[in-house]
Simulated assay, not measured.
Amino acid sequence: MIGAKEVEMTLTQIERSVWETLQADVQRPGSSFRYLNLCSVDHALTPKARIVVLRKVDPKRRSLEFHTDTRSPKWRELTGNPSATVLGYCPETRLQYRFEGHVTLFEPTSDYAVSSWSALPFHTRNTYVGGPPGDELPEPHTTKEILLGNTDSQQGHDRFGVIVFSVALLDWFKLSRESNIRAQFGYDENGEILSRSWVNP
């Protein structure tokens, strides 16, 4: 039988490993947890989900950072309702991370967005050139032609927004043939741990 001290230590190690993995995966383009599913709710209360690229992790404040076009539906959805869920899964480790929390949005003119923009390489800045996300195109290569023709490193800056997601709940899930394992961790508004526990898978 596992004692309380061993369980607490194991939970602590699990929680620490999540944030260490996320922080490392920001620098690894091919890693599973660099591409996460950001889920929001639109004005009609319809759930919406899309893959986003993890740009930055703050383990101390338990926050994740994503970048987006401020003309996108997700920006409008998160403006209307800042509550969100972020989901990630790694097929190699069979680990699922599910985060619940809320977002803070930084407009293109904010100091934080300006600073983040200045650190982006040109090819990434180019993804904000062209029409609004979701608009109809006459043919699939139209956007590519626009990107190839752009030489202005500042074009697209007025559409660049930063999403900072503050985690309130971390649900850690390990898939196993023998027995699935699940744990949950709660955080306060400053990222301090409020609770940690094993839960039924």
Rank of each mutant, 00 (worst) to 15 (best):
R16K: 14
V129K: 12
E178A: 06
G80W: 09
S179E: 09
K60T: 14
L170E: 01
S153Y: 00
S176D: 14
L120C: 14
F66A: 10
V18Y: 01
C90V: 05
R159T: 01
S115K: 15
G30N: 02
N190Y: 06
V167I: 09
G161A: 03
T10Q: 11
N180R: 12
K5P: 01
S40M: 02
L170S: 01
A4Y: 00
D42S: 14
K174L: 08
V41N: 10
I14P: 03
W75H: 04
Y97V: 07
V199C: 09
T12N: 09
N190F: 07
A4M: 08
D25Q: 13
F33V: 02
H43K: 15
E178L: 05
L54N: 04
R125H: 11
A113C: 05
F185N: 06
R55I: 14
L170C: 03
S17H: 11
W19Q: 04
E8F: 00
R28G: 02
A183S: 10
Q23S: 14
L22K: 04
H141R: 14
Q154P: 00
P29F: 08
T79N: 10
E139Q: 14
H43E: 15
I163S: 02
G186P: 02
P108K: 01
H102W: 13
G134C: 02
T104K: 15
R16N: 08
R177D: 00
G149C: 03
I181G: 06
Y89P: 09
T68C: 15
P82C: 06
V162K: 07
T127I: 10
A183E: 01
S72W: 06
E107H: 09
V7I: 14
A84S: 05
P82E: 04
H102V: 10
E77S: 04
R28F: 00
Q155Y: 00
A24P: 04
Q13K: 13
P140M: 07
R94I: 03
R71L: 08
Y35T: 15
L170M: 02
D69H: 09
V164A: 05
P29S: 07
E139L: 12
T70H: 07
C39P: 05
Q13G: 13
D25S: 08
E145A: 14
P91D: 12
Q154L: 08
Y128G: 10
P91V: 14
Y128A: 11
N190L: 13
Y89H: 12
D42K: 07
V167L: 00
W198A: 13
P132F: 07
S17I: 10
